[in-house]
Amino acid sequence: MTIKEIQEEIVDEFSMFDDWMQRYEYIIDLGKSLPLIDEKYKTEDNIIKGCQSKVWVHGEQNDDKIVFTADSDAILTKGIIAILIRAFSNQKASDILEANTDFIDEIGLKEHLSPTRANGLVSMIKEIKMYALAFNAKN
């Protein structure tokens, strides 16, 4: 599936929820189920200091695609990471660079991607794009 298709699928899923509580409960569940990043990648180098919650992100090449794994010490942040990973991982670098995160607004989580939120998510998206950029330059 393309990033766009995955994002549409996520928006669709979220449209089933009536209120914020259901959305948050879903994110919390996602946070609990996200496959953790390999401990060896939870290094100082891979850490995004978000002030409030910490985020670790690691990217790896898999043929012509990039696979991302990530983690956070806060569960809501981790749940949103799961959504972002679902959309952006295992995709081609050029597609990642072209994609945006507008779907996050549509699923009612806009405030979590605010630059003033200090949870590390904005920096994480930047990091994902940087991986893609570096990957593109290399190939």
């Binding site: 509580m21 948050y24 409030q52 919650s53 010490d73 806060a74 569960i75 809501l76 200090a118 949870n119």
Partner: peptide
């Protein structure tokens, strides 16, 4: 995590500081 609690109680109208 304090951030998680702060975020949820904000939804319930409560302003506290976390961090």
């Amino acid at each position: 995590h304090p951030y998680d609690i702060g975020t949820i109680i904000d939804k319930l109208g409560i302003a506290v500081r976390t961090g």
